[in-house]
Amino acid sequence: MMYRKKKGIVGRIFRVLQFIIVVGLGILLCMPVLILVFGSIVDEIEWSGRIAPLIMDTVEYIEWKWIPDYPTLVNFRDLLFFTPQFFTLFWNSITIVLLILLGQMLVGLPGAWSLAVYNFRGKKVLFSLYVILMILPFQVTMLSKYLVLSKIHLLNTHWAVILPAVFSTFPVFLFYRSFCGISKEVLEAARMDGANEWRIFTQMGLPLARGGIFAALILDFLEGLNMMEEPMAFLNDKSLWPLSLYLPEISIKQAGMACAASVITLIVSFFVFAMFKDYLEMGIISSALNAKSGI
């Protein structure tokens, strides 16, 4: 806005330069995805020609063409119809993520509501504690979680991944923010009219904050599909694994297949991203506002 007033030749060149940086860097960041997409329509024979130098370990380089000699969907066919384990893992991923989201809503929403709407002693301390728990990397609490899960015999089941994630404090913060926007007067008025606290929460809090709640769920969904540390530590049985652990198992010799598997995994995230990116942005911003009010 403020740069737009005067525009000499220098200003214009400067502007064009900025445009090149913004767009150029953006395209560069998207490159890895494009490589995967274009790599997935190349069949194994063409791929093996391309990556021969890598496998033989010669001094030549991997070859890359954007448009393949023989574009084909054979990788997708093989993966979707002839690789049943891919399906198992795909559904593992989806089940785990959806159950986590459901649990987070059941547990996190009321908790966030309480923190946002009521005042009570120790609220500040509780809040700081939630922030710390949010930042702690998984590895720090890994042993604790392992000890509990082995005690209640949930290791090597999906619940070992789902339950600890349900009680993660990150979504509580995201939800908290969306509840903070609701005016206290409206709630007080409902209270005067004789509504009980549960009704105020379900019939006023939830509908009024649904945008923010949805945003938080989008962010959580992407997070959940990306989950790696938890299943790696708590799931031994490969048939229980989510897709995120299967992909690295495909060797580079099956590059076409690996690209196709990556693309299919990506599609779910990308679809969610493209449909709800405004919500995602909202979620990101509210996550920040949260950390601010939390600390």
Binding site: V23, L25, G26, I27, L29, C30, P32, V33, I35, L36, G39, I51, P53, L54, D57, T58, V59, E60, Y61, I62, W64, L222, L225, N226, M228, L243, S244, L245, Y246, L247, P248, I252, A255, A258, C259, A261, S262, V263, T265, L266, S269, F270, V272, F273, K277, L280, E281
Partner: peptide, 25 residues
Amino acid sequence: MYLLPMAIPAATIVLVWKMLFEKQG
């Protein structure tokens, strides 16, 4: 364009990383 990488599961990108940074990459 800058937000897109966030939506990409870490595992899907391993292959690209290998193609980029291997000795023959």
